[in-house]
Design a protein around this nucleic acid. Structure first.
Lengths: 243, 243
DNA sequence: TTGACTTATATGTCTAGACATATAATCGTG
DNA sequence: CACGATTATATGTCTAGACATATAAGTCAA
């Protein structure tokens, strides 16, 4: 279980030095959340450099959400984002092939229909419209990997009408054809019902990891998908830095 | 399920305009992974601005991992990071109080002992040494919220010997007293065994979300913790931006 | 063909200024 | 005291330069 030393080997430059100094103080707790970072002009004097140099350091810390900058007031250490969570799982096919396993895909069902009330609730739309409902299965080395139930809003993604979801998984198709701006994952655990157990080749009552993913482009829901993973075998691994 | 329009309302400035233009082309796929972004001097001419302005735009895109910059070669669209995952859950007490619920804590067991072979394997240490093993329970509004099984390496965190884990949850204590540099979460699903079901007040065989968290400081494991959440009630929500 | 050397060039960092702008703090007035 | 107007100030953005440096590409000799 070795740990990568992220980027400690790159040449130290002044702005990185400044950024690092501040970062260290934040991570060690020497500067707790809410603490005001020295003003830019103070750091200029301290490090004997121009304002643009300290500004670059502070801007990067702000982009990384470690500090918050407020006009006239100064820069402050942000509270660590409790319970804030970020999870990215873009494409199951890519995930499986990246693991060096062979990817398999079976389309179980694909229907184009007028949105039901339940569909509209799931997609967060009011008006009537058409949707595509897809059920499919992903497998790795011929072992079921995940069961996918997806809804695509055809009003938001009209191109999807011409996609061949028997040939290409909807997730991959969407990733390559439809730009998105924001997404949300919700992770929970359930026990397998008949249908899920059957599709994943596990026992009824076996644990499953469930991921619900909603994808938007500029406040418009594009697609909603629910994925069932066999819970014992599949794991989501998340590694990160920070304080 | 409304969606915050992240930062579309802020004043458009030139470097943001440039960043946005490039971002859009990447997200729409107009510039696929590997595509070379125009050189800085081309963008300077195109937008009629100084090099620092385009540099700021490109630097931010690079920091966000949307592009990769290579000296002499130029800037290139990066492959989307499939299966990359990030998850942050710092402190259960903070999580619960942030939800506006009352936090409760019960220490079930706390033992200081020489590290067993299993302990050493879990912490990734070779040498013999002392550890603290803690089992405790977190509750929200007097309903069991999570069961925690934690191991703290006393060689790495000697201060922990003086902490009172009956009064303060170990996660909170560690967060406030011990700086860390890197962590890893693994999420999986299981069904509750006797002990877990009993502690969480759920049925044996009910689904549970399991989070294993390892925390390091400079390649040294500080603590390993396993959390069981009642799977039906607890959800991890992850929201993020990007392509 | 291959390896070593040179050169051109795009990015990396930095400066010493400038004006814009949001807003905390102060001041003044009813 | 409450509230609106003013002011001071820290950050936000931008410029027109500069030199450093890694490296792709070209050059030349073995």
């Amino acid at each position: 279980m070795s740990l990568a030393t992220d980027k400690l080997d790159d040449k130290p430059t002044l702005y990185k030095q400044i950024r690092r100094d501040i970062e260290t103080r934040i991570l060690t707790g020497e500067w707790p959340p809410g603490h005001r970072i020295p003003f830019e002009h103070q750091l200029m004097a301290c490090y004997r450099c121009s304002r643009m140099t300290v500004n670059k350091a502070l801007s990067e810390l702000a982009q990384a959400d470690l500090i918050e900058r407020r006009r006239r007031a100064g820069s402050f250490v942000r509270r660590p984002q409790h319970l804030s969570a970020v999870l990215k799982i873009a494409d199951i096919r890519a995930e499986i092939t990246a693991l060096g396993r062979s990817y398999g895909y079976q389309l179980v069902q694909c229907a184009r229909r007028a949105a039901s009330a339940a569909d509209r609730a799931r997609l967060g739309v009011r008006k009537a419209g058409k949707v595509i409902a897809i059920t499919c299965r992903h497998s790795a080395d011929n072992v079921p990997f995940a069961l996918e139930d997806r809804l695509i809003d055809l009003e938001a993604v009209p191109e999807a009408a011409h996609a061949d979801f028997a040939a290409e998984p909807p997730g991959s198709w969407l990733l390559h054809h439809v730009p998105w701006t924001e997404a949300e994952h919700t992770i929970s655990a359930v026990v397998a019902d008949d249908r899920t157990a059957d599709a994943l080749g596990i026992a009824v009552g076996a644990p499953c990891l469930v991921i619900d993913r909603y994808t938007w482009r500029s406040a418009r829901t594009l697609t909603a998908v629910r994925l069932h993973y066999p819970g014992e075998s599949h794991r989501l691994v998340a590694r990160f830095k920070g304080g």
